[in-house]
Lab assay of single mutants.
Amino acid sequence: TFVALYDYESRTETDLSFKKGERLQIVNNTEGDWWLAHSLTTGQTGYIPSNYVAP
């Protein structure tokens, strides 16, 4: 799992909003700078900017 370093507000319907400190499970990280992730807090799935999270 990864932890959010910053808050992120989604800009498209495929993005995932999250708050700093939220735990995220990475589903697919082969898309370059945008990873498909599942929030362990909200249960939602969407794309996140990879530079906003850390292991």
Rank of each mutant, 00 (worst) to 15 (best):
T1C: 11
T1R: 06
T1Y: 15
F2A: 05
V3Y: 10
V3F: 09
V3D: 05
A4M: 06
A4I: 03
A4Y: 01
L5Q: 05
L5V: 06
Y6A: 10
Y6W: 13
Y6Q: 10
D7W: 03
D7N: 08
Y8N: 02
E9W: 09
E9C: 09
S10Q: 08
S10P: 09
S10L: 03
R11K: 14
R11V: 14
T12Q: 12
T12Y: 14
T12E: 09
E13H: 12
E13Y: 08
E13W: 07
E13F: 08
T14C: 12
T14D: 12
D15F: 12
D15G: 15
D15W: 07
D15Q: 15
D15P: 02
D15C: 08
L16M: 14
S17F: 05
S17T: 10
S17D: 05
S17I: 04
F18H: 01
F18V: 08
K19C: 07
K20Q: 11
G21M: 02
E22D: 15
R23C: 12
R23L: 15
R23S: 14
R23E: 15
R23N: 13
L24T: 00
L24G: 00
L24F: 15
L24Y: 02
Q25V: 15
Q25M: 12
V27D: 07
V27N: 06
N28K: 10
N28G: 15
N29L: 13
E31S: 14
E31F: 13
G32L: 11
G32H: 13
W34V: 10
W34S: 08
W35C: 04
W35I: 09
L36H: 05
L36C: 11
A37F: 02
A37W: 01
A37C: 02
H38M: 15
H38Y: 15
S39M: 03
S39R: 05
L40F: 09
T41Q: 11
G43L: 07
G43S: 05
G43D: 06
Q44P: 00
Q44N: 13
G46A: 03
G46I: 01
Y47K: 06
Y47A: 03
Y47D: 02
Y47H: 06
I48K: 00
I48L: 05
I48M: 03
I48Y: 01
P49W: 07
S50V: 08
S50M: 08
S50N: 07
N51Y: 11
N51S: 14
Y52H: 09
Y52A: 14
V53S: 02
V53K: 02
V53E: 02
A54S: 12
A54P: 05
P55V: 10
P55R: 07
